[in-house]
């Protein structure tokens, strides 16, 4: 398997932005979304997220599987949440317009709980669409400097770069270990025995992977010390500057955040909004 980071959005409009833009926008957006429960506003936010996502030009074929997985899992999560809450919508004090009651569980399915589930799903999707570009449209070697310039200390920012450095090589080593054990007649993927036995069955792969990486780290540590790592202020080869577009993008998400936060206090957009159509349908 190839574990190298996949820079699928390379060259796109969003990928050409300063990487800090993608990270800051995501967090501004997430902090905005979590306050909003009005489906009409959430729909608008979905649109914003969609336009933003499209600007990263991530090829559909490259992330199809990922999206399918996310959608499936989120749908499941929302459904289970609906069942467990017994159809009760948090912070909602009004009446429920019930369609029917689920047999056995006795959960009432109402216009309100359906709206709540739908809105919940839409919020998740918006956040996911905003998150994907960070994963696929930032050059792998730009993360360290991006976090550095966002105020993360030098050493931690470098640790992030180092993470990208180790990812492919440790993945290879792990494959070698798994291979070496297969040659000895051991396959961790084989399902046999009880749970604890199977857990122990993974140690021939897990243990050498961990221990070898740690033993090998001695040389890496020496190599870093010998080149003066962490002994004082450091510079970074890569340079980041916001251009006007970058500032506009961040400005947009900042204004959106401030505006909706304000509206959240003075209007009802932090409460669910149930479409009249659903209420009518339920009462028919």
């Amino acid at each position: 398997m190839n574990f190298a980071p996949r820079y699928l959005g390379r060259g796109s409009w969003l990928a050409r932005r300063d990487p800090r833009v993608l990270i800051v926008s995501l967090f501004l957006f997430v902090f905005t979304v979590v306050q909003i429960w009005d489906a009409r506003v959430v729909l608008l936010l979905d649109l914003v997220a969609l336009v933003y996502y499209r600007s990263a030009a991530i090829p559909w074929a490259g992330v199809r599987r990922q999206w399918a997985f996310v959608v499936l899992f989120l749908t499941l999560l929302v459904l289970i949440n609906t069942l467990i809450t017994g159809g009760v919508v948090p912070n909602y004090t009004g009446d429920y317009d019930v369609f029917f009651t689920l047999p056995i569980l006795g959960t009432p399915i109402s216009a309100q709980s359906l709206t709540y589930a739908g809105t919940q799903l839409m919020r998740f999707m918006a956040m996911t669409a905003m998150g994907f570009p960070v994963a696929y449209a930032v050059a792998p070697d730009a993360f360290g400097i991006a976090f550095r310039r966002l105020g993360v200390p030098d050493k931690f920012a470098f640790a992030i770069d180092l993470t990208f450095r180790f990812l492919p090589s440790l993945a290879n080593d792990m494959q070698t270990t798994a291979d070496a054990q297969r040659v000895r007649g051991h396959d961790w993927q084989e399902a046999k025995g009880g749970l604890i036995t199977r857990l122990r069955n993974t140690t021939p792969v897990v243990v050498p992977s961990v221990i070898n990486a740690l033993v090998g780290a001695e040389d890496t540590i020496d190599a870093m010390d010998l080149r003066g790592f962490g002994t004082g202020r450091r510079t970074w080869l890569k340079h980041l500057v916001y251009d006007r577009t970058d500032k506009l993008v961040i400005g947009f998400f900042l204004v959106q955040f401030l505006l909706l936060t304000y509206l959240g206090f003075v209007t009802d957009i932090s409460q669910i909004w149930v479409p009249q159509l659903l209420i009518d349908l339920a009462n028919r």
Binding site: P140, D141, D161, L162, F164, R165, S169, G216, A217, D219, T220, D222, A223, M224, R227, G228, F229, G230, T231, G232, R233, R234, T235, W236, L237, H239
Partner: peptide, 28 residues
């Protein structure tokens, strides 16, 4: 050091070359 696979800390060739000077705060 003997094993280059362990001594390299940069994910790209340029990052690896720059690592030492960066630590010594050499200007860009």
């Amino acid at each position: 050091l003997q094993d280059p696979a362990r001594q390299i800390v940069g994910a790209t060739v340029e990052a690896e070359l720059a690592f030492g000077p960066e630590n010594l705060a050499v200007p860009r």
